[in-house]
Design a protein around this nucleic acid. Structure first.
Lengths: 206, 206
DNA sequence: TGTACATCAGTGAACGCGCGTTCACTGATGTAC
DNA sequence: TGTACATCAGTGAACGCGCGTTCACTGATGTAC
């Protein structure tokens, strides 16, 4: 082979890594193949030696970003006492730093809506990573039986992702800070309560 | 004038209305000017007699969608007893019907991330409508002083929007239904609790 | 070890296409007389 | 009331541009001898 054994894989990984940042920053359709290759120090012509299509890169880059988020959660939780792990994750997630750096943050508020509209293949890849993340979050919910913890994990991640979404819509001023604080306090409180009960059945509505 | 006095305004409104549906369905960049005009029964050439740019339509269509959502909340709340209004809104929002019909649903999970990345003008227009919606939600939070209710309203809307986002990523199967249920129960519980307290100050994190 | 050859990651021009936007034109209707 | 004219919402061809993708080619390096 022309280059050393791992050369191509390294290039491939570099493209994926850089793309995962830019796609989170600019949206799933917000940056083109040529610019993504330029980010990796290459020209656009070589793209299809690494990926079948732009969409294939989006799937890889998104999976990479979700894996990095989960790795980040693990590293953070390793640095604090078990009873503080949940709060650690929530507070880091709902920080101004995360809000202002979508390129290195969670893909759910950054890319979720767009990817949910993509092809079934892409959406399912996203759904798989979401489920992995929910399982990990379940492990961090303190003092609950597994089933209740899973339910609380879903509610917590929803609150976290929703809060980040609203905070970014609000910009980076007063309203945005107010949103972050309200979401953070709510997420922290949520996991302290008794396990959530099912609501009584209600009549269907339109 | 060539047509009756309100003719142009009616056409304008029709374009905005149809666009608000298709944009929520396909994303802020997911459908072109020509197709949006076709939706309204027109050809693309006339577009710029109604809007300065595509972006101007996006702003109008988005504001229209948010107004319809708020109107919908008001109508629903008028149909039930005051103590049931909050639950009514949460349950309708977090229904499979809403999940499966983004074109007629809330713009926040559908368009929020994309619009937060648009020009400051567009983002600010969105932020204004978000604040209006938060004010309305505050009115529906039961049994709390205004300030606490506002905080709870933010947390509730974040949980609602985040749950809808996750549910759509999950598709429309088991996982998605599980997400909807967990988010719904959590949002309903949240507003029943004591007002959320601020979390104790913690050290900064990266 | 040194040389000739084969490989293939990466280059850059070119493609077809769809987009947002512009513009000269049309023709149905309101207005003036 | 009837006729001629003015208006302007809407039409459809055309524009420049950027996109995803293709492809013939290059040249640095690994391999065979």
């Amino acid at each position: 082979m022309r280059y050393s054994r791992e050369h191509k894989q390294e290039t491939h990984d570099r493209i994926v890594k850089k793309a995962s940042v830019r796609l989170r920053e600019k949206g799933a359709h917000g940056i083109g193949v040529a610019d993504l290759m330029k980010e990796a120090g290459l020209t656009h012509g070589g793209f299809y030696a690494h990926f079948d299509s732009r969409e294939a890169l989006v799937i890889e880059a998104f999976a990479y970003a979700m894996d990095r988020s989960m790795e980040h959660w693990r590293k953070q939780s390793d640095q604090v006492a078990p009873e503080k792990q949940f709060a650690q994750i929530v507070e880091t997630y709902l920080s101004a730093l995360h809000r202002d750096n979508p390129g290195h943050g969670c893909s759910i508020p950054a890319l979720g809506a767009e990817i949910a509209r993509e092809s079934p293949k892409t959406r399912k890849a996203f759904a798989g990573k979401l489920d992995e993340m929910l399982e990990m979050m379940t492990d961090f919910i303190p003092n609950m039986p597994r089933k209740a913890a899973r339910k609380q994990a879903i509610a917590t991640l929803a609150t976290m992702a929703g809060t980040m979404l609203l905070a970014r819509i609000a910009g980076s001023g007063e309203l945005s800070d107010e949103v972050l604080k309200a979401g953070k306090d709510s997420a922290l409180e949520g996991a302290k309560r008794e396990p959530v009960k099912a609501a009584p059945a209600k009549k269907k509505q339109s």
